[in-house]
Design a protein around this nucleic acid. Structure first.
Length: 372
DNA sequence: ACTCTGCATCAAGACGTA
DNA sequence: GTAATTGATGCAGAGT
DNA sequence: TACGTCC
């Protein structure tokens, strides 16, 4: 669940490091998202959606709508999937699993944090048809997101929890998906460090004291004291020498070094070996996959795709406005997929049967990415 | 006063229509 | 008859 | 905007 109250601390103590921008500010930006968190959100959102086979397809519908929303706003998303959670996180996961009820068998709870494979495959398939790249992280997704930002391949990490900052993501944005023109909130890591007067190492120490996923908290040491003491003494070790150990007992099995190492030298995918590529969504493939294979309502899928199509900038006005490198985004004429129907007529089987020659899109399947 | 903790509560994702 | 997740938020209370 | 529906 990230770092407890880190956002509050930053807003209070380093307000200048936080700014708000309208969504359009991020046009043509590459943004990394934690796929597992997003999917988990969709799955736990109520009410759950079941198709006629009784399969929960909340994740597909959610990912479909949300990704198109990003694409419509000119954002280039990269989804990063969690890998193996670090050992230090096991106690936390075990606690969560236990809280989730003793009903689950041990085998399932052990990998509770990982998405079930078919679920993940569904999402990868969907992303491929959407033309959106994804990355498999070896461990924590947020860590790989941060590495991608540091490498320059990605502009920022979009996430609701703050882990990406101690992992070193230079920019972090929140509320990317909020509805009514709510502004996006951007945290600048360099500004945070400067305002707090801390190095990245000290900032990581701060996050550990605030309470992270990897080790327990020190009793009676909340955000205010933690910040002040760290600014005063520099490291957790120094802080410990200046507080009363009776009043501030350490948690059992407190692996300070381990937690630090996970933040400062996390296991991440090598950005240099990752190629990010975006393609236009493949409407035909999407209808086939979502509606026919997964039994989402076909009319809805088509309507949404049509809305996306209409939101596409016309080729001629797309050119002069932005000088931004339109790398690899070939503008495909989409009219061919939707025989221009003025009034959205739902109940037809469209787009699927009508397959113009030469547009057998499904090759799009290939273009997720790759590597870890 | 200020700070931290514990407990209760509530809303959750996105669309479309009224 | 019948389930029931997670986390953000606000308020009460206790320790400093 | 508030609320009901999605499958």
């Amino acid at each position: 669940m990230g770092i407890a109250r880190l956002a509050d601390v930053i807003k209070e103590e380093a307000a200048e490091a936080v700014s708000s921008f309208p969504l359009r500010q991020y046009r043509d930006r590459v943004i990394a998202l934690d796929a597992s968190i997003a999917i988990y959100q969709f799955r736990t959102a109520t009410p759950k959606l079941f198709n006629r086979n009784g399969e929960n397809i909340s994740h597909l519908q959610g990912l479909f709508y949300r990704t198109l929303h990003l694409l419509e706003n000119g954002i280039k998303p990269v989804f990063v999937f969690d890998g193996q959670p670090p050992d230090l996180k096991q106690p936390l996961l075990a606690r969560r699993a236990e809280a989730a009820g003793a009903r689950r068998d041990a085998a399932e709870s052990r990998r509770a944090e990982n998405l079930p494979r078919p679920l993940k495959q569904d999402c990868e398939t969907l992303l491929s048809y959407l033309g959106v790249p994804y990355v498999q992280a070896p461990a924590e997704a947020e860590a790989t997101c941060a590495a991608l930002v540091k490498s320059g391949k990605v502009w920022c990490t979009a996430t609701e929890d703050m882990d990406a900052l101690p992992f070193g993501s230079l920019r972090l944005i929140r509320h990317l998906n909020s509805k009514n023109n709510c502004e996006v909130e951007e945290f600048s890591l360099p500004d945070i460090l400067q305002k707090l007067g801390m190095t990245q190492e000290q900032f990581v120490d701060l996050c550990i004291l605030l309470g992270c996923d990897y080790c327990g908290k020190i009793w009676q040491l909340g955000p205010k004291k933690a910040l002040k003491l760290l600014q005063q003494h520099g490291t957790i070790e120094q802080v410990l020498q200046n507080i009363d150990p009776q009043k501030h007992p350490l948690p059992a099995n407190w692996d300070l070094e381990g937690a630090r190492r996970l933040f400062l030298q996390p296991e991440v995918a090598d950005p240099g070996r990752i190629t990010l590529e975006w393609r236009d969504p493949d409407p035909e493939g999407l209808v086939r996959f979502l509606a026919h294979e997964k039994h989402m309502n076909e009319a809805r899928v088509c309507r949404r795709l049509q809305r996306w199509q209409e939101a596409q900038p016309k080729p001629e006005e797309a050119q002069p406005k932005h000088q931004a490198p339109r790398e690899g985004r070939k503008q495909r004429k989409l009219g061919e997929f939707f025989p221009a129907s003025k009034h959205a007529r739902p109940p037809e089987v469209r787009g699927v049967r009508a397959r113009p020659p030469g547009t057998r899109g499904a090759r799009g399947m290939a273009q997720g990415i790759i590597l870890c």
